[in-house]
């Protein structure tokens, strides 16, 4: 089983988000970058599959050299090798095309992405990749079992779940549920030591500019201060919700 896990390098959830003075990009100063939380579930799932039926786990990122510590961390968690496509992609389709080019030149039985990255929140790359590869796709995937080249995937849909069957290879857009949060692997000392010598291949970019571009970033307008209502006076809350907020 040859598994590719796509890894996004994103600001930590608790990071304070600031933009550069001209408002055209994220200001990375003081921001801690981590493996995208959605991707962590996919990486641990890949480890479970490998432990049950053998195989190789490759992690991949499309990004500049600054993302390498994040790939090293994925190696420390247990991936066998890493690939970085050396590019500064400005949109999801460019990332998806770079990934497609790598996948077409190699051979993977299963491709696991997080359903979205918590920086640009696009939820675009996994579905684009599946469409480019013409492979089956299960998004918001919260359960996956493999049996002899056939996958059964459970996905969240609005208000419930759907269960799908497909022949491998396929693309997964994963989230919590793929494995439980308590089962997420974290690097141990042995993993960190061995990650230093695992292969991290840097491949040149093959795609040019994409069809979308960021123009500017701003912070949302600050919320007005909270209005406190006395616990003995819930009628006042009902009045405010009706007359002021028009929420009921």
């Amino acid at each position: 089983m040859n598994i590719l896990v796509c890894i996004s390098h994103v600001p930590d959830t608790t990071a304070k988000i600031n933009f550069t003075a001209d408002g055209t990009a994220l200001d990375p100063a003081g921001v801690q970058f981590v493996i995208n939380p959605y991707d962590e579930f996919g990486l641990t799932k890949a480890l479970h599959i490998k432990e049950a039926q053998g195989g190789t786990i490759t992690v991949i990122n499309v990004g500049p050299a600054t993302t390498e510590p994040t790939l090293r961390k994925a190696l420390a968690i247990g991936a066998d090798k890493a690939v970085r496509i050396d590019a500064i992609p400005m949109d999801a389709i460019t990332v998806a095309k770079e990934l497609k080019n790598h996948i077409s030149a190699n051979s993977y039985d299963l491709i696991i992405c997080g359903q979205e990255s918590i920086d640009y929140n696009g939820q675009q790359v996994p579905a684009m990749l599946a469409a480019l590869l013409e492979q089956p796709f299960a998004n918001a995937c919260v359960g996956l079992s493999l049996d002899n080249g056939t996958a059964t995937a459970t996905s969240e849909i609005d208000g419930g779940h759907a269960t799908y069957k497909a022949s491998l290879p396929m693309v997964i857009g994963g989230k919590k549920g793929l494995v439980e949060e308590k089962d997420l692997r974290i690097p141990n000392m042995r993993g960190i030591m061995s990650a230093r010598t695992k292969p991290l291949e840097v491949a040149p970019a093959t795609e040019g500019e994409g069809p979308t571009k960021p123009v500017s970033f701003e912070k949302p307008a600050g919320k007005a201060a909270v209005k406190m209502v006395d616990a003995e006076n819930v009628d006042e809350l009902v009045r405010l919700l009706h007359e002021e907020a028009k929420a009921i």
Partner: peptide, 8 residues
């Protein structure tokens, strides 16, 4: 950025 930013 999880509602911490708005992009044009």
């Amino acid at each position: 950025f999880s509602s911490k930013g708005i992009e044009t």
